[in-house]
Simulated assay, not measured.
Amino acid sequence: MSKTMKALQITRSTTSSPTLSLQTLPIPPLKPGHALVKINYACIHPSDRLNAQGLFPSTTLPRIPGRDFSGTVVEISETDTTNTSKSWIGKQVYGTSGSSLGFTSDGSHAQYCLIPHEALVEKPSSLSALQAATVGVPFTTALICLQRAQVKPNDIVLVLGATGAVGSTAVQIARAMGCRRVLTAARRAQATNPDILLSGENPAAELTLRLVELTGGEGVDVVVDTVGDVALMDAAVESLARKGRYAWIAAPRGDVSKKVSFDIFQAYRKEITLVGCNSVSPTIGDAAGLLRSLERWIEQGVLCAQDEGSFRTVRIENCVDEGYGRAGEQVVIEME
């Protein structure tokens, strides 16, 4: 095995903005409690692009970015006298960052990456290696939102941004959980027409009107908001049923208002709950546990990843410009 690898690295001098570049770096030496994983594919998520721009204050530099991955375990440190950890060697694994990978420890946008023992998750047979590299962030984020909203089988759930990666996953998981009804809202129709198409000049008013029609004025028990639009949030909070829960993972970007106002009298009378969700809050071990909890639904085909054709693959040698430089595209880095 070569002693060096190709990797992306974020660096910054004291006076400049962060710079992302392709580097040749030493393959990280194995350390206790970790496995060395040869990365096959790694997705470039929007959060990876934001990280490369210096927008995650927890990131320490220099740093190899990258949250999601699939790969093969090539080395692993011993965990006990029976040496059971060696059974991982050669296994196909996949995973996601939690709070560390790509932020405070080197991430998956490299040919090799150190992964803690507790974060090793065997790749489900129903996912291709490429698909497995794309699902960590959306699958775990959607589950975090639904868990923190304390979703129950008799709930009516509304997903804002239901055609996006996290939103479409939240729809699938809510249905798998047996929710009474899952309503979808999005700005684009795409292949699966949303229940509420927010394509007009006043999306918030459209949302309010359609929710009255679809629920008979009953309102929704849970909102999962993957959009982060202030006007939509105002409307959706007002549309919550008694003891409704609102979980969100996004906010407006740029120099615009991020303030939301709502009727606090009605809010406490209805006993609503607002829950902010942060996908980089769990530890990498906790994130692995979330993936394991979804394994049954993944293997049964209840929870599906996007088709490989939805992503553009880019060699690591070219992905600074053709991957990170293509905001809005779904890109996967192919390491070989």
Rank of each mutant, 00 (worst) to 15 (best):
L198V: 01
T226G: 14
T14D: 13
A305N: 04
S21D: 14
D234V: 09
A174G: 00
S77K: 07
T208H: 03
G107E: 10
R67D: 12
I44K: 00
T184H: 01
S261F: 12
D286A: 10
D68C: 05
R187M: 05
G328D: 05
S16V: 02
A170P: 00
P29V: 06
I196D: 06
E336C: 15
R269I: 01
H45D: 04
E322A: 15
R326S: 14
R312F: 14
S16Q: 11
L55Y: 02
S310D: 15
P46L: 11
R296D: 06
W248I: 00
D48S: 11
A142H: 09
A35W: 08
C277V: 07
R292Q: 02
L30T: 07
G309V: 09
I156Y: 02
L22H: 05
R63A: 08
L114G: 00
V220K: 08
F139C: 05
A267Y: 02
E334C: 15
V74Y: 13
A7T: 09
K123T: 03
G90E: 06
V182L: 04
P29D: 07
L183R: 13
I316N: 14
P62R: 03
Q190L: 00
A129N: 12
Q190P: 00
I284S: 13
E75H: 11
K270L: 06
V275G: 10
V260E: 13
T208N: 07
V280N: 12
V275S: 11
G323W: 07
T24W: 12
L160K: 10
I264W: 01
L303G: 08
H34Q: 13
K243N: 05
E295I: 07
